[in-house]
């Protein structure tokens, strides 16, 4: 099984620790991922703004990078959603690219999907004693259909108290360029999200998309809140490390 990591430009440049946690966790589970360096970005920023030609040229880097692999796994439901939901449209104009895009769509999985559906693992052996709440990102859940997988993984983490997030399915207001173009509106949305996170009194906010987590976390940082914001992969990997330490010590 040849597995490639699609790290996404956001994680690559801003949150490498998320990519690293993912690679390490998969390694523990016996999957060695590769990182083909031709990849850059799924093209979503240009695509969503209406610049499909620009988006297509950027998206090609993924077609090229992932051709030789059986599976592609990524820490972002949004970027996977872009591939899954929009590449058929984006490459509709030329048959060869369309075929390659369809092949990519077939084998691309968001991190939690890959664990639960492909590896059929829902217990990674992690322990994380904390009160946590989960924000389901819109694109991951609605475009890609990732709904139960992250929760299933979280439910198996020892010591983790998972509390439901009120208005969980409401968008956090990120939306890529929307957060800049419609800044005030986006801020009002993220304020609501932060308020709902606080209502849960969770110590940890966990998600599967760094775009949303950057947005929510950025707002909480401004307010000086002390909620730890983590990608699911980080929480799971850290949880296995704690377990590991305990095993050694115990």
């Amino acid at each position: 099984m040849k597995v490639a990591l699609f790290v996404t430009c956001l994680v690559d440049s801003l949150y490498p620790q998320v990519g690293e946690a993912m690679v390490r966790l998969l390694h523990r589970l016996g999957v060695d991922v590769d990182f083909p360096e031709q990849q850059t970005c799924c093209g979503q920023p240009a695509f969503n703004s209406g610049y499909w030609d620009d988006a297509r040229e950027v998206a090609r880097t993924l077609l090229d990078a992932f051709d030789p692999y059986d599976y592609v796994v990524s820490p972002s439901g949004s970027c996977c959603g872009m591939i899954y939901h929009y590449y058929p449209d984006l490459f509709a104009g030329d048959a060869e690219s369309r075929r390659r895009a369809a092949a990519l769509t077939e084998k691309t999985y968001e991190f939690s999907q890959f664990l639960v559906r492909v590896l059929e693992v829902s217990d990674v052996g992690a322990s994380f004693p904390a009160r946590a709440t989960y924000h389901p990102s819109c694109h991951g859940s609605r475009l890609l259909g990732v709904r139960d997988e992250p929760l299933e993984l979280l439910r198996h983490v020892r010591g983790l108290e998972l509390v439901p997030l009120p208005y969980a399915a409401d968008c956090c207001g990120f939306g890529g360029t929307f957060a800049v173009k419609m800044g005030e509106l986006s801020s009002a949305m993220v304020e609501d999200k932060v308020r709902h996170v606080e209502e849960t009194q969770a110590q940890v906010l966990v998600g599967t998309d760094m775009g949303c987590l950057m947005n929510i976390g950025g707002r909480m940082a401004r307010e000086g809140r002390r909620v730890r914001v983590m990608h699911l992969a980080q929480l799971l990997y850290e949880g296995t490390q704690a377990q590991h330490r305990r095993e050694i010590v115990g």
Partner: peptide, 19 residues
């Protein structure tokens, strides 16, 4: 970018990218 940064802390580039 003020729409973003007025109310949110902007992220900082990682010292070393994943790649």
């Amino acid at each position: 970018l003020r729409g973003w940064t007025q109310t949110r802390r902007a992220p900082v580039l990682a010292k070393r990218s994943f790649r």
